[in-house]
């Protein structure tokens, strides 16, 4: 049985469906990215999985426990780590006291090891913490009891790039050691960097569920070619090239066909330089969100996070 199995999970608030018949599984030992703009319903799914809110319809199992069965769900929480998006620590306690408190409920055999990697100022009261320090304290408490499944809601928010890298490396090591990680994010590069599979959610609906590699393959290749001199478009362009942009002797496009065919095609021309690479998830994101996403403010916010290699 997969650590997380979600079946038609639905949560309505009046007319608004925060989660609308969401279906997917998270497999053992993978890092699953739950991607979507703010307000898409990521946190709702996570809070449903933890039994904090009740589904309107459908259900899910977490480590074999049905989320509608409170007793069973409470039982499996010994083996779950949770990093919420908003960290509600007891503000007057010091970091050490906060960890002691959680340790009494579920153990802390890996605390020292984690504190070597993530170092919040343990002696100080949490109310003096920066958001990055709070996040680090949250990471330590989520992993310190060596859980089988860790659910993280926007795990890198507030962390500086160096700490983000450290977290990503750590997550990969945990995954390799068999831990299942379910993380939500609106940061595309993060999901691309660290996740094995990704589910994309928009307005409560799961709109894509893919392996990261497949997602990139299906989305074609980003190609950039610099020719010695401009050529006629009709001669150069093929049907597999989309989103074409020609500037003098430089041509940029997304290639949806087979790479070998593309290379065979390119050698017919006098090429000075060329680059064939995976598109940023950013672009794929736009592809999935399509026209609808254009006017969506939160979506724009989300894509602004990662603007490297913007091809438009």
């Amino acid at each position: 049985m997969a650590p997380i199995e979600i079946e038609d999970l639905t949560k309505r608030y009046g007319d608004l469906a925060a989660n609308d018949a969401v279906v997917f599984d998270v497999e053992r030992g993978e890092i699953f990215g739950y991607l979507g703009p703010n307000g898409a319903g990521k946190t709702t799914t996570i809070r449903l999985l933890l039994g904090l809110i009740k589904p309107t319809a459908g259900t899910a199992t977490v480590l074999g426990a049905d989320i509608r069965d409170r007793r069973a769900l409470t039982g499996v929480k010994t083996n779950i780590g949770y990093l919420p998006d908003t960290l509600g620590f007891e503000e007057r306690l010091t970091g050490t006291q906060v960890l002691d408190h959680f340790a009494r409920m579920r153990g802390d055999e890996r605390r020292a090891e984690l504190l070597d990697l993530f170092r919040p100022p343990l002696e100080k009261p949490v109310e003096t913490y920066s958001s990055g320090n709070k996040r680090m304290l949250g990471i330590v408490q989520a992993f310190m009891h060596d859980p089988d499944l860790v659910i993280m809601d926007e795990p890198t928010s507030g962390l500086d790039p160096l700490k983000q890298d450290r977290l990503h490396q750590f997550l990969e090591a945990e995954r390799d050691a068999g831990t299942t990680i379910f993380l939500s994010s609106h940061v595309l590069s993060e999901v691309q960097r660290v996740c094995d599979r990704v589910g994309i959610i928009r307005a409560g609906k799961l709109i894509a569920l893919e392996n990261i590699d497949d997602l990139l393959t299906q989305s074609g290749k980003n190609v950039w070619v610099h020719l010695e001199e401009p050529v006629e478009n009709a001669r150069f362009l093929t049907d597999d090239m989309i989103d074409v942009e020609v500037t003098g002797a430089t041509i940029q496009f997304t290639y949806t066909g087979d790479v070998k065919t593309l290379l065979a095609h390119l050698v017919q021309f006098e090429i000075v330089d060329a680059d064939i690479g995976d598109p940023q998830l950013d672009d794929i994101f736009k592809h999935y969100y399509g026209d609808e996403g254009e006017t969506d403010a939160t979506n724009e916010d989300a894509t602004r996070e990662d603007t490297t290699a913007e091809v438009e």
Partner: peptide
């Protein structure tokens, strides 16, 4: 949101 963290424990 303290309750979120509290209830993530086996309690």
């Amino acid at each position: 949101r303290k309750m979120d963290l509290t209830l993530s424990n086996p309690v």
